[in-house]
């Protein structure tokens, strides 16, 4: 079992809020990935048991929504916008630079489990393009130098947390 008792209890509570059980699938998926960090087949089966919905329906909903993580992710999730404004201002080059810098390709996680790199659709900050989001924070008007600095800061921050 990967789901905690607390998560299961919350899922069962969510079910009671809707006229149809199926409606509880998305909240249940959210509860699961907030606890575990990602989703996979075993977790779909556990959710299915908790809210009494066939596992296939849970999996269908989870895979439809790209923002549910399907693989374990690094400590920092780097989401680079690749939509039109950012693209015009060099997002593609930025992504290539990040790939080289981190030694991974888009979609992968660094071996030290620190960074996961993905590119995403518009994050609504076109005025400050090119931009990226790392976990819950925006990093805007990016250049290669600012990217270097941000990565360095985050690495140091992680080390500091490890030591503490």
């Amino acid at each position: 079992m990967m789901l905690s008792e607390q998560s299961i209890a919350r899922m069962k509570e969510v079910v009671t809020k809707y006229p149809s059980r199926k409606s509880a699938v998305l909240p249940a998926l959210t509860i699961a990935y907030r606890q575990i960090g990602h989703l996979d087949d075993d977790i779909y089966n556990e959710i299915s048991e908790a809210i009494e919905i066939p596992a296939v329906e849970v999996a269908e909903a989870a895979t439809f929504y790209t923002m549910f993580p399907k693989q374990p992710r690094g400590k920092y999730l780097i989401q680079v916008c690749h939509n039109i404004s950012c693209a015009l201002l060099g997002a593609d080059g930025l992504i290539t630079y990040l790939e080289q810098k981190l030694g991974i390709v888009k979609g992968e996680t660094t071996p030290d489990n620190l960074f996961t790199l993905i590119s995403v659709e518009c994050l609504g900050s076109c005025a400050t393009a090119p931009m990226m989001q790392i976990n819950n924070d925006y990093y805007e008007n990016l250049t290669r130098e600012s990217v270097d600095r941000i990565l360095k800061e985050l690495t140091e921050q992680a080390q500091a947390e490890d030591e503490a």
Partner: peptide, 16 residues
């Protein structure tokens, strides 16, 4: 079930 969406949408068996 039917999973994912767009180009990569696929029909596949249920998990496990």
């Amino acid at each position: 079930g039917a999973y994912e969406r767009g180009n990569i949408m696929e029909i596949h068996r249920a998990p496990g």
